[in-house]
Amino acid sequence: MQTMPAHAAHHDDREIESLEEFDATVSARATLAGFRIQAVDLTDRTRELLGTDTAGAVFLGCPMRGDAAAKVRADGAMVLPPVPDLPFDPYRGVLYAPDELFAGLAEGYEGTPDALAYAWFQRTRADGDIFASMLRSVHDDAVSDALDELLSGARVVGVMGGHAMARGSEAYAGAARLGRELARAGLTVATGGGPGAMEAANLGAYAAPYDDEMLTESLGLLAKAPKFTPSITEWATAAFEVRARWPKGGTSVGVPTWFYGHEPPNAFASHIAKYFANATREDGLLARSTAGVVFLPGAAGTVQEIFDNATPNYYESRGEPTPMVLVDRAHWTERLPTWPLLQALARERRMEARIALVDRIEEAPAALKRLAG
């Protein structure tokens, strides 16, 4: 099964993103000159900061005592202090975890960091506040950096599909089995990180280390809260009940957005790259799906993703075209006839050998493997 690369194993060796890395660097090198220290609480590292050269260093959102801050500035370091009263850290060095975004769920979703970040986004976007806009951009760039570090060396397969797919439906169960099979084949499953088909695929990857009965039981537990409306609290609580019963789930990635903040992230992606800018999120998710993408039935958003993925394949702007598998012939040829246009675009180009339409979700893994070969 796919093992996610250890965090920080592949990032720029001048980046420090944890207290452990800070201590190891100071001990081994006796200098912080030229380093970038990102969202590390240095309140209790005053002695080290006072005694270490920090010329040319950049401290991004690192709490530190006044005398330490004055000394590193005197060294010529740049200090961008934490921004007070924000429901998120714009300088964060790692991706989100479900427990972090849903902290305080027992008192209601409205008070969780995820909901508070969405409320802040709505308020500041309406104000047109340039400082808030800058903070969103810095945050999203930090998330992209953390996502690249996490996925370095992984074979990533994207699973796209609509948020309307309800728990308890056969379609949802099928998407979960798909995620499980892909994870068991050594692939890292990446989704849009929301409800519906996205949650189902992340759930399947979470279930991969367990026996098949675990997924069956999980699907039954989740069916009591089929959709995130009318209550996100009940919907998310059911997911955390599953996680509590089977706490050692497999890894996968969710890439949701506060742009669609009414749509919460799902709790089964072990790593969540949540963005404010939807365009950055969409392009980033597809660009990182280097082992191909499976498109489950969806509506406007999924149609957009199909052609967002087809365009670089058509122009080969990212190199070799990546596999694209569309699931449900009737959906993609009759209800939303996307497949004929995709076929026409691909004709006599290298991407023609990398696209497939299958009738059933069970056929998707074999089709993906065939196209990749």
Rank of each mutant, 00 (worst) to 15 (best):
L342H: 02
E316D: 14
K248S: 15
W246K: 07
F295C: 07
L286D: 07
S270A: 15
V255K: 06
A344L: 08
P321M: 06
L368R: 02
A356I: 08
T338G: 05
I361D: 00
A291N: 06
H271Q: 11
V253C: 05
T333R: 05
E352W: 04
F276Q: 04
I361M: 09
A269S: 12
P323E: 09
Y275S: 08
A300T: 14
F307K: 04
A367S: 15
E363Y: 05
F268A: 12
G254E: 00
L342V: 05
Y275I: 12
W332P: 00
G261Y: 01
S270Q: 12
A291G: 14
E282Y: 03
Q304G: 11
P323I: 05
S289K: 03
W339Y: 13
E263C: 04
P365E: 03
T322I: 09
F276W: 10
E316L: 05
V293I: 15
A277E: 10
E320W: 03
P365M: 02
E282G: 04
R349S: 08
P256E: 08
R360C: 06
H262E: 15
L336W: 11
R288Y: 09
F307D: 06
Y314T: 03
S289H: 04
P321W: 02
A310P: 03
T280S: 13
P264C: 10
S252F: 01
P365C: 04
P323S: 10
M324V: 09
S252M: 02
A344T: 14
G301V: 09
T338Q: 09
L336D: 12
E263R: 01
R329K: 13
G298F: 01
G284M: 08
R245D: 12
R360A: 12
A367R: 00
N313D: 11
G319K: 06
R243N: 10
R350F: 05
M351H: 06
E334N: 09
P297E: 07
G254L: 00
A299E: 14
L296S: 07
S289F: 02
P365I: 01
R350A: 13
L326A: 13
R245E: 14
V255N: 05
A330N: 11
A273C: 11
